[in-house]
Nucleic acid binder design. Structure first.
Lengths: 210, 210
DNA sequence: CTCCTGCTGTAGCGATCGCTACAATTGGAA
DNA sequence: TTCCAATTGTAGCGATCGCTACAGCAGGAG
């Protein structure tokens, strides 16, 4: 604690400026999309000149990618999956889903921006989109793991189906919430969705492959 | 058929040009989003000068709104809901869902562009977004009607829940398809989704309001 | 002190943005 | 034929785009 350790101490700004830039960028990108996020607008919102933005980030594409990465980080921090343990499979699934729903309410930027980027398909894909799709893939794999753990009898095909359906439901409910606002009780809907997927898993486990 | 009726006959282009412009615009908007759709790019793709675009459309916002409206029209034409009649409720629901899925495969532009616009929330909302949300609302009401018809015993709350869930599932599955491509069998997933919603309706009808 | 490095401020590059003014063309009506 | 209206072509407006060059300024190291 006593020694300066590395070169960086408190200095002037630097890290804080980077955060200010990302804060401004995430807000504007959420309003106006990829192309709509102009450097000048970000600069105006965060109070730093364009040159500062280009000192912290290589170019606009790099900035957007950083926005995605950071918003993913804050979302991850908000998730905090409950310890594997208590209750029946239904209860565990519903509890997990509720946790995810709450995290999405608390930190919606990641999924919102990600879906916006994902729906576009340009000839040359922005880095932010790639990052989002990779992260999303990891999340999907996590769901696959949970499903196979809760229902070991399911064949591979059924697990794939359930995973796809689970992710799709989450995306769709999130979109509904974004569009309709507070009229959608995201936590309740996620719990409902979890029960649906659970019941489907039971049925599929009973008679394999319809 | 004999009389010229109104002033417009076959003339030169006009209507066809308008279609060419919309064709180009829908493609570019699907790739690059709202801000990314530059008039110059549309002009280059359809081969008509910018002045022609501005002769047919008031401004860029009007063009995008027209794109949404027309893509909605072609989607509507692709839906062709089956006549109310045959089979059990499950079969009817699954059949309807399959029809919607096929129409989305055939004419995905409407939902894709619409979702892109819907996820953005600018301070001043583009007309295209408003149009999409209105149309989407009508579609949701249609689902509400079908649900109440198939399950008259459900209370209002349950119908609302099921409608939201049904729409969300459709959106989410569509997004999955857009991201993962042909790896997602949209028709099968929609049929599965329909059965899910159906089963949920049965449960909710059995014991009202959990 | 002198230096170096991290960061900010100023100015501006060429390209593209949305959009407009206006002349040219063209086919139908008279 | 003359005229009108619908459409396209040319040229360009001012604003903004992403991005860069470069000078200025701070504080820690020597």
């Amino acid at each position: 604690m006593a020694r300066p350790q590395t070169t960086r101490k408190k200095r002037a700004n630097g890290v804080e400026s980077r955060q200010r830039i990302l804060d401004a960028a995430v807000e504007i990108a959420g309003e106006r999309g990829y192309e709509g996020t102009s450097i000048a607008a970000v600069s105006a919102k965060c109070g730093l000149p364009a040159s500062s933005i280009y000192w912290h980030f290589k170019d606009k594409d790099d900035l957007i990618a950083a926005v995605i990465e950071r918003s993913f980080g804050t979302w991850l921090a908000a998730v905090e999956l409950p310890d594997e343990a208590a209750g029946t499979p239904v209860e565990r699934a519903a509890h997990m889903a509720a946790g995810v729903a709450r995290s999405l309410l608390e930190a919606p930027d990641f999924l919102r921006l990600g879906l916006m980027l994902a729906l576009e398909n340009r000839p040359t894909e922005p880095r932010g989109r790639t990052v989002f799709l990779q992260v999303r893939d990891i999340a999907a794999r996590k769901i696959t793991d949970v499903v196979t753990e809760l229902f070991p009898d399911l064949d591979e095909e059924a697990v794939r189906l359930l995973t796809t359906y689970a992710v799709a439901g989450a995306d769709g409910l999130f979109v509904q919430r974004e569009i309709q606002g507070e009229a959608v009780d995201l936590v309740a809907m996620f719990e409902f969705h979890a029960r649906m997927v659970h019941d489907a898993a039971l049925n599929l486990a009973a008679r394999p492959t319809t």
